[in-house]
């Protein structure tokens, strides 16, 4: 598999949210606006790339039996670093993402890539894979956040699109599920079209 394919697979074909259905908790929980979605996506990308690098570097030093606990420690460390750095330099975003920052550690996407990809490939591929998957995740979260923000508040990235309050339900919890449902369906259709060609 070429590096380009390795990079782009995360956007449509193997999109972590729309196809693999991984990391749905943050995908639903923080996407009340496109900005929050993007922020969460980039934070996860940072953790994903960093832990992929470390895991691919130490993969030969770790005995198979303690592989998973070691990976958990590596991931949890990067999550805590993200947590501290965000609180220091982006307090507003830190406050709106709240509980979901420490919960990056149990995002199945991060553990999944460390275990399934980084532990079997060289560092360079692991970096590309981390960026591809992370940006695919960010793409999905920004899409969902944008959809909910446009329909629910009539805004995008805080820019007002039309007057009035919009359909409030899309900002609230049910809108997250319904919005994601339709985006997954849309991705299914796009993916099928691409494959048929």
């Amino acid at each position: 598999m070429g590096q380009l394919q390795n990079f782009t697979k995360g956007f449509v074909k193997d999109n972590p949210v729309f196809v693999l259905l991984l990391g749905l908790c943050p995908a639903l929980g923080v996407t009340t606006s496109a900005f929050n979605g993007l922020g969460m996506g980039l934070a996860t990308t940072f953790v994903l790339v960093s832990s992929n690098i470390v895991v691919s570097l130490i993969k030969n030093l770790i005995p198979a039996k303690v592989r998973i606990p070691s990976y958990i420690v590596v991931i949890a460390s990067f999550v805590t670093i993200t947590d501290l750095v965000m609180e220091a330099y982006m307090p507003a975003l830190f406050e709106s993402l709240g509980l979901f920052i420490p919960l990056i550690v149990v995002n199945c996407l991060v553990m999944g890539r460390a275990e399934a990809f980084a532990s079997k490939n060289n560092t360079w591929s692991a970096i590309v894979d981390g960026f591809g998957m992370g940006l695919g995740f960010s793409f999905a979260l920004t899409m969902l956040g944008g959809l909910r923000e446009i329909l629910g508040a009539g805004e995008i990235f805080g820019w007002s699109l039309f007057a009035g309050d919009g359909m409030l339900v899309f900002v609230l919890a049910p809108g997250a599920f319904i919005g994601l449902g339709y985006l997954v369906a849309l991705n299914n259709i796009v993916k099928e079209r691409l494959e048929r060609r």
Partner: peptide
């Protein structure tokens, strides 16, 4: 095996303590 795990954990704790001390000031300032 246990040794490896301990080294991993010790490295992680050391890194985190460093980052914590580096970000303590900026967090208070924010």
């Amino acid at each position: 095996m246990v040794l490896t795990l301990m080294i991993v954990a010790a490295t992680a704790s050391f890194t985190l303590a460093t980052v914590y001390n580096l970000t303590k000031e900026p967090i208070l300032r924010a």
